[in-house]
């Protein structure tokens, strides 16, 4: 799980390097960790620290403010897990999963905007575009969930 998350982080980083200035990459390392925490039985505690460290590394590489993404990723993961477990088991559909993951991603974006403010309209436009890419990713995760037979091994809250 740690290796997979590390690979996701690195992939996200490589894409950010490749597309820097053209577009903001959605936080799919976070989405991956959210997905795994929801659908697998890896301990939530471990997932929290994976999200935290992933966010911290992103802070070091891109944000320049320690704790910003670490905190945002942790909050997003906890919220996603909580919302998912609020659902009765028969209501945990792929669509709901996609919505929960998108909500987690949106939480990070809103958190960044609250902490950093809006430096320019151009950046705000880029953030909006980033969320639209996250919609596509959420649908993909929802589809994967559907193909795997809606299995959720996550511990019940």
């Amino acid at each position: 799980m740690i290796i997979n998350s590390l690979l996701m982080w690195f992939l996200q980083d490589l894409l950010q390097v490749f597309l820097r200035g053209w577009m903001l990459i959605p936080d799919f390392m976070l989405m991956f960790v959210c997905y795994k925490s929801i659908t697998s039985n890896y301990g939530l505690s471990r997932m929290i620290w994976i999200a935290f460290v992933g966010g911290l590394c992103w802070d070091l590489r891109w944000a320049g403010i320690l704790g910003l993404n670490a905190l945002a990723y942790t909050v997003a993961l906890i919220l996603s897990f909580w919302f998912w477990n609020l659902m009765p088991k028969n209501g945990r559909t792929p669509v709901i999963l996609a919505a929960v993951m998108l909500m987690g991603h949106l939480t990070v974006a809103v958190f960044r905007l609250i902490i950093l403010g809006i430096p320019s309209h151009y950046l705000l436009y880029q953030v909006a575009l980033q969320q639209s890419y996250a919609v596509v990713l959420s649908i993909i995760f929802g589809f994967v969930f559907y193909k795997r037979g809606n299995k959720s091994n996550a511990p019940q809250a």
């Binding site: 301990g43 505690s45 929290i48 911290l56 942790t74």
Partner: peptide, 27 residues
């Protein structure tokens, strides 16, 4: 199960506090 959830709450709280501390102290 509850023990696991309690663990998660403790870890989540520590992570959040650490995040806030880093955010406030490192800017």
């Amino acid at each position: 199960m509850f023990r696991q959830l309690n663990f998660a709450i403790v870890h989540g709280t520590i992570a959040l506090l650490l995040g806030v501390t880093l955010l406030l102290s490192s800017a």
